[in-house]
Design a protein around this nucleic acid. Structure first.
Lengths: 203, 203
DNA sequence: ACCCCAATGTAGTCACTGTCAACATTGATC
DNA sequence: GATCAATGTTGACAGTGACTACATTGGGGT
């Protein structure tokens, strides 16, 4: 079989090619015709598997979200503090750091992950998405008594917004050209501010 | 003169039309040919005034940033707390609220303001940009003793990241479909968390 | 063993975009 | 009044997403 008419697994092949394009060129680099070209298939073949470009992007976004979640999990698992309180705090920081780190290391995937229309955490039941992982870290802080249950509500969105904004501003926004040192330092400030805001005493 | 060959003020007219398009359609709605059409001029006329589409977008972005700054200033000026400490705190909150409010009320302008390549606060000397206004609010907190000078460093980026992330997540991100009540409530949590993180005692 | 047909992939086309090059028109300046 | 740089126009090109009509395939029912 030199060139079978039917690809056999075109859908996944297209997604894979799309992920590759997204990594190197970002959302706007995911061009249907190019995706088809790289898969060795005619332009338009994709329309048998995706309603339109957005649907392909959505699928790519899911893959990207899964990779982000994996990166977050990896960093959380590295925490080896003995004191449970310290460990829980540290884990929250690592979640945030992983988020920003991923955004800067994989700008294209990050963009696709949060640009499209796909739901936040639609990953399969076995794999928890980024949002779920953040929630877990916050729950850990409650269990350990670092934050009161009352302050748990809304904390996920607050944390998420902070690191997401940080990532976006440094990625495509006005802070894009800051040096790595300054970025690291300000990220530290941000994480500390959030942590203190959640765990600190009322003013 | 029924139709003068020379428009007289094409550059500003194009920017104005671009702003209008950006408001209703967002960045990708700012299409050179449409901008030209609405200005009653041939496609390509814009190339006498802008190197390319990005340069026009950049100009539109400046206008958008100026409007955002104006909205922020307006909200800050409404604060009428008597106690200087309360007033300073309140002003910071209002800055953040104005930012998010503007983003949700003018999604297109907000997108253009932070999407392109134009510097953050290049507004003229008389008009301070959004970033500058935030800095002013934070300085106010230092003067009043609500936050120590040591915590002033990096605070601007932290605040900015928080509200920016909040806006983006609710605008084009996964939180886009939240009800207004929930959004308001979580914004309140976010602002409180940041405020406590900046002003609160060490944990 | 046969045939049919739905699924899959292809070819061709359309309207639309940003950009470039060549040309037309203007009005201020000498 | 002639000149010429600035300004606007026309026409073209390659690339895009999307649509329609056609080609090829292989599995399932008879």
């Amino acid at each position: 079989m030199v060139k079978p008419y039917h690809h056999g697994n075109l859908r996944s092949a297209l997604i894979e090619a799309g992920v590759s394009l997204a990594r190197t060129q970002g959302t706007e680099g995911v061009v249907l015709r190019q995706v088809a070209r790289e898969t060795g298939v005619s332009h338009n073949a994709a329309y048998r598997h995706f309603a339109d470009r957005d649907e392909l992007l959505s699928e790519i976004g899911s893959v990207a979200a899964a990779r982000l979640a994996e990166a977050m999990r990896r960093r959380m698992d590295l925490v080896d503090e003995q004191d449970p309180m310290d460990a829980a705090r540290r884990r929250l920081r690592e979640v945030g750091r992983a988020y920003v780190e991923f955004a800067l290391a994989e700008p294209g995937l990050f963009e696709v992950a949060f640009g499209g229309d796909h739901p936040p955490d639609e990953a399969g039941p076995e794999q928890a998405g980024p949002y779920h992982l953040l929630g877990r870290a916050l729950d850990g802080l409650v269990e350990v008594g670092a934050i009161t249950p009352g302050r748990r509500a809304g904390a996920d969105v607050a944390c998420w917004a902070a690191v997401h904004g940080f990532a976006v501003l440094h990625l495509t926004g006005p802070l894009r050209d800051l040096s790595e040192e300054v970025r690291e330092a300000t990220l530290e400030v941000l994480l500390t501010t959030i942590e203190r805001g959640l765990t600190g005493s009322a003013t």
